[in-house]
């Protein structure tokens, strides 16, 4: 199993590598086009600001590669948001994998949402052995609007898409690598997905 974490200078990649290491799987961090293209599983992480992250992706041509990947891809946090149509953050166009938009929470709640919140309406094998209302760790100021491709929701100000799925593409707003045993289970499920 070759897992590649797309390394485009966005955030805490070490934690994801360590999370796979705890599962006994080596995950390589790389921005190499061919290495990514030939991986069995791809993690598209991201922490930071959307427009500068998108600029970095474009520099290495990864904005073109990601949407045409055929193997299971998991976007995490900003990675998932960048796989949507567009985000309000820096008025950035996304990769358009998921048919939804990303908006900012209003100031009726504390922004960023930081901490453990529950997930519900779980669909697909990504959530095998994960119970409804499980807690996951989230840190974000922007959220994806619920749509047909929503496979899990979280409530904060409103119900939003905390996980998305289309074909071989998955996205989660929470950080499985930091979400204790439930997060570990999700990463294991992602590895177990049959192509």
């Amino acid at each position: 199993m070759k897992v590649v974490i797309i390394d485009y200078g966005a955030g805490n990649i070490k934690s994801i590598q360590f999370a796979f290491q705890r599962l006994g799987v080596e995950a390589i961090a790389s921005n190499d086009y061919n290495l990514i293209k030939t991986a069995d599983r791809i993690i598209f992480p991201g922490v930071g600001e959307a427009s500068s992250a998108m600029t970095e992706l474009k520099k290495s041509g990864l904005d073109k590669l990601i949407p045409i990947l055929k193997q299971p891809v998991l976007g995490i946090c900003l990675g998932m948001q960048l796989m949507c149509l567009e985000t309000e953050e820096g008025n950035t166009n996304g990769l358009g994998v998921f048919n939804t938009k990303v908006k900012r929470f209003t100031n009726s709640v504390k922004v960023p949402q930081m901490g453990w919140n529950t997930i519900q309406n779980l669909k697909t094998n990504l959530f095998n052995n994960i119970k409804e209302e499980e807690y996951m760790y989230l840190v974000h100021s922007y959220y994806a609007i619920n749509c047909q491709q929503t496979i899990a929701t979280t409530n904060y100000e409103l119900s939003y898409a905390t996980a998305l799925h289309k074909n071989n593409f998955y996205g989660v707003q929470f950080h499985p690598e930091k979400s204790s045993l439930a997060g570990q289970q999700l990463l294991q499920n992602f590895i177990n997905i049959r192509e």
Binding site: F18, Y137, K178, S180, L181
Partner: peptide, 8 residues
């Protein structure tokens, strides 16, 4: 620590 623990 990052290697061993699964919380932030």
């Amino acid at each position: 620590v990052a290697e061993q623990i699964n919380i932030p």
